[in-house]
């Protein structure tokens, strides 16, 4: 299969690779860039575990081809941590509020919520519920995730 050359920025780093035209963006991130924090739960856009940012928007990486990300700026869950290794306010809030059990869904939630909080720094509960309605968690239940989002929003506004 002929390779296609793509250039993109991932977590601030310039990347240039040749990939199969049919390669999923999620597989590119996990298998080629070895950024395995992006998880795959369904591969058909249902669960949200594979959510990343493409040009600032939350996107399901299992529904995009790597070649479609050519020229884009991509961010994955690995970009959230602070430079000194501390958790950022949202990661900390998830941990503080027991918003994860197995943690498989967590990267997707973190990416969905972090772009949401950038647009809406003081959301009400209904808005938070709507924001996470496209992400599935099978273990934790959503109440603690909502609590975590509230705490994160408060930390930012303080």
């Amino acid at each position: 299969m002929d390779g296609v050359k793509i250039n993109l920025k991932v977590n601030g780093q310039d990347i240039s690779r040749e990939v199969d035209a049919r390669l999923l963006l999620s597989d590119f991130i996990r298998e080629n860039l070895l950024l395995t924090g992006t998880h795959i739960g369904c591969e058909h856009g249902v669960c949200g575990a594979c959510t990343i940012h493409v040009n600032g928007d939350p996107v399901r990486s299992c529904l995009m081809l790597a070649v479609q990300a050519d020229g884009c700026e991509v961010k994955t869950v690995e970009s959230l941590i602070q430079e000194n290794g501390d958790l950022n306010h949202l990661q900390q809030a998830f941990s503080d509020n027991h918003a994860l059990q197995c943690g498989f869904c967590t990267p997707g939630f973190l990416m969905t919520v972090s772009s949401f909080l950038e647009e809406n720094s003081n959301p009400c509960e209904a808005e938070i519920r709507k924001c996470i309605s496209g992400n599935l968690c099978r273990c934790t239940g959503y109440s603690n995730i909502i609590k975590a989002v509230k705490q994160a929003a408060q930390t930012v506004s303080n």
Binding site: L35, T36, G37, H39, E78, L80, L87, G103
Partner: peptide
């Protein structure tokens, strides 16, 4: 009591079977 696994799970550095190479 803080869970020991949280740090790796919220930073995307957990190790699930699909991550093993």
């Amino acid at each position: 009591v803080k869970r020991k696994e949280d740090y790796r799970l919220v930073t995307g550095t957990g190790q699930f079977v699909g991550d093993i190479r």
